[in-house]
Structures are given as structure tokens and as C-alpha cells.
Amino acid sequence: MKSFPAIFVFFFSSLVARHCLAEDAFSWHGFLSQGISQSIDSDFIHEDDEISFDLTELGINMRYDMNASLAVVGQAVYLNGGNRYERGARIDYLFVDWRLPDMENWTANINLGRFKSPHWLYSATRDVPQTRSTIILPQSIYFDNFRDVALGSDGVLLQLYRSSDEGNLKINWSYGSSPMSSYQTKALLGEFAQGELKQDYAHQFSVFWQPPSLDWQLGASWLDSDFTYHPSANENLFEGGRTVRLYTLSAVYYAENWEFNAELQRNHSRDFGGYSPAFFDENKGEGGYAQIRYMLNSQFTLTLGYDMYVSDRNDRDGEKLEAATGGVIPAYFGYEKTATVGVQWDPRPNWRIQAEHHWVNGAGRLTSIPGPQNTPDTAEYWRMWAVQVMYWF
């Protein structure tokens, strides 16, 4: 599903279908973006403080309506984000969208296949550059190392929507799993991991509500997921696994010229095995962000944001983490706090230039499980910036 042949087949079949299928049944869109970025005193984007052109996003998506209630939807992309996620082509999603018969004021859709997650504010739009508020999203919620896992799953998604005089209610439920690449395995267990990491399942539920005025929205979601690691015969790691529970609250407020959004998340994770047969680690972390966007005019938008994450609510300054590892893992790997300033400029329709700067204290979101084999070269205080040019059609 992630190979270049697969993406070429997807692109080719989309273009052929555009000419062969009925115009009113088939639609397709795409985007191209290129940028430049740098992480200073950190290898979050690139090593050695290098200015990098590893900020490429190319994609094409399509929808074919077979009839009034059944459609095929998909997207293929090529990504290069430096160290943030795996470089290369992949099928982000490819599913059958089945609209069920309406029930009073309720509409319902079932997605079967590699569906796209709708459970967080940006989970359904993080794959398209021009729909994001910032180039690099808040890492407390949108952890780039696991971008492909969080974007969607292979399985089933049920979406229910109800509109009434009292407001709009949306309910989502999904169950599935995502394939884990060697890149994600190394991000979790360290660069020397050679075995197979498998996501056993991801079970998610979310609900969003808007009043009739549509000027604000509240949401809540829950995730339950298990992972299993099977080591290779010639490595020093052992059978292991991880369980994860995520609880997320969100809020959005819209005004004429500005917008406020925030998400708060608590997580409960258990890690066992892997580094040794007796290894066990349990953490109850939390994080979240708040962001304000102000539209100066039809072309310019300013963004201010603050993002915070701690891996253990009982060790907010990371001192216990450093003491438990004999100083091998610095305390600042237990948290991460980021202030962000950004600007968007839309000089012409379907064109955008976006720029931003992040000031960061801590390194808690560079790796999933800090360990002797999994501690990037990052200072306690570091920063990063990015500029990206986008075009969509």
C-alpha cells in the first residue's frame, strides 16, 4: 500500500477514470507544496542544524459516486518531512463510502477500507497542507512520528449526523488497525530495532456538538489501542508491547475576523518487554494547545499558539525520569513546551505562502519512549522555523 508502484497505479487510474467515467460521478483534486525549514539545537527536522528542503507534500485525491448512496474515495501522496515522519509515497486512504437511508433527522455513513479518522479537530485535514493552521501542528496531539497511524486505519468507520433547531450533533465510531513501518518501529524502540511492530487494534469514539448559530463547537473523543513487538532472531530486543488510552476534549470559537481553538488530551500508556523481559513502564501523561488566528484581510492571517506536553503527570519537570536512568536521559525529555508565531499569505486563488517560527523548551515529543537507544541529540531549549509555498487544484 505504500510502494511507488501502488501510487503510480492510483494516479494513473484516477486520470483514466476522469476521462472514462461520467463527469457528474467523478471528481478529483490535488495539491503541490514545497518548503524550507530548520531545527536549531535539535534533530527534530534535520541533523547538524542544517537548513533543509525536506518539506515536500504532493497529493491527489478522488471520489467516484457509483450511485446516490455508494462512492469510492481515496488519496495518494508523496511526503518528505525530514526526520518528522517516513519519507516516500503512500496511500493515505482508500475506502467505500456507503450512505445509509436517513432516519428522521439523522444521516449516517459507513466507510469500509482504509478510512480517514475524524476524531480530532485536525485529524481529517492534517494530510492536506492548505487546510492546516500551521505547517507543523501542535505535537502534543498531532505527533508527527505517528502521522500515518493517526491519520486513519484499515477497518470500519460509522458517522452519524443530526441537525435540528437545537443544534448539530456528530457522532463517530471506528475500529481497525494501521500497518507499522520499520521507521515507526525504530521511532518507538530505537534505531537498532529489527523486528516487527504490529498495531493489534485501534478502537475510537468521538462526539461533536454545535449550537444553531454555528459560531462555536465542543467535542470529546476516546481511543483504545494495543501494539505488539516481535523481535528478529539476531537482535537484543525481546517480545513486548504497548497499550494506549487517549481522552481528548476540544473547543472551537468562530468570530468575524478571528478564530480560537484548543484541544486537551490525557493519555495512559503501559509498556512491557522490548528492552528486557522484565521491563515495565506505566505513564499517565497529558498535553494540549491553544491557538488564536486573526484574519487581517482576505489575504493575510496571523497565528499565535502555545503547546504543552508532559509524559508523566506526576513528574512534570522530568526529574524522576533523569534519576531513574542515572542521568542517561535528561530531565527535559519528560516534557515539551512550544510557543508559535505564524503568518499565511494568499496572493492568488489556490496559492498560499505560509511561514512560522517555534520556540521550544524540552524534548518530550521527539520520541515515544525515551531510552538509552532512543534519545535524539536535542538541547533543552531549541527552536525551528519553516516556510512553505502551496498550490492546490
Rank of each mutant, 00 (worst) to 15 (best):
W385T: 10
Q354H: 09
Q130K: 04
T375C: 12
L121T: 13
M180I: 15
A17E: 05
G167Q: 02
N111G: 06
E259K: 15
S181P: 03
G362T: 06
V244R: 13
G167I: 08
G152D: 02
N172V: 12
I329N: 05
L151R: 13
P277C: 09
N83M: 02
S52I: 06
R147Y: 15
I141C: 05
G334V: 00
G152T: 07
S133G: 00
D144E: 13
I7V: 13
A355H: 06
Y78C: 06
Y289F: 15
K116E: 05
Y85D: 08
R270E: 08
A255H: 07
D43R: 02
D92E: 14
D148C: 07
P376S: 14
N234F: 11
S181I: 03
A290L: 15
E380L: 07
E239F: 07
L55C: 01
Y381H: 15
N236M: 03
F31N: 11
A150Q: 14
R245W: 07
T248E: 08
W209M: 14
S69R: 13
Y306D: 01
Y161M: 10
S140W: 09
W106Q: 02
V96F: 11
K198I: 13
A379D: 15
T107S: 15
T131M: 11
H203R: 14
E57H: 12
F333M: 07
F143T: 11
F272W: 13
K198A: 08
T338E: 05
Q199S: 09
W216C: 01
S69T: 14
E235N: 05
H357D: 04
L214M: 13
D215P: 01
G364I: 02
V9P: 00
D24M: 01
A6V: 12
V96Q: 02
Y64H: 13
A202Q: 04
L158Q: 03
Q194C: 03
Y289K: 03
Q217E: 12
G155T: 12
I292Y: 10
P376R: 08
W345S: 00
E23N: 04
N297W: 01
L189H: 03
W106K: 06
F8K: 08
F26Y: 11
P212V: 10
G327I: 03
F8C: 09
D127I: 12
P211C: 02
S164Q: 04
L79D: 09
F44W: 15
Y78N: 05
H46R: 15
L366Q: 14
A323C: 01
K186S: 00
G305D: 05
